[in-house]
């Protein structure tokens, strides 16, 4: 058992989050997947903090949490307003950004 296990777990979680972003269409679930990816990164930061014996990594993780919170607030607000205008929370319905 080494710290590498944590890191590999974080990588797998991050990948699952990324794949989730790609395959899910409900905007809220997509957001959850993004949160999962942020959490995986946090796990990495904390693992390295432990490896190096400094608290800086934990502080990074703390900032990630704060930024994630802010992002979730704004993101959910955006989803709400999109839903109000388009009556749909599917990311495929907001497809005007094209050629």
């Amino acid at each position: 058992m080494t710290l590498t296990y944590y890191l590999v777990l974080a990588a797998i979680l991050f990948t699952i989050g990324a794949v989730g972003v790609l395959v899910r269409r409900n905007a809220i679930v997509v957001f959850m997947c993004v949160e999962l990816m942020l959490n995986a990164v946090n796990l990495t930061l904390i693992t390295f903090a432990r490896s190096t014996g400094t608290v800086d990594g934990q502080i990074m993780a703390l900032f990630v949490m704060v930024v994630a919170a802010a992002e979730v607030v704004v993101g959910l607000a955006i989803i709400m307003s999109i839903y109000r205008t388009r009556r749909s929370a599917s990311v495929d319905d907001a497809n005007l950004l094209k050629y």
Binding site: A18, L22, V91, D92, A94, N95, K98
Partner: peptide, 20 residues
């Protein structure tokens, strides 16, 4: 190539993951 700009966010995200 512009046809790949479908407007679907998930396609673009796929591009990002491919780049990563």
């Amino acid at each position: 190539l512009a046809r790949t700009q479908t407007g679907f966010v998930r396609s673009y995200a796929m591009g990002m993951l491919g780049g990563a």
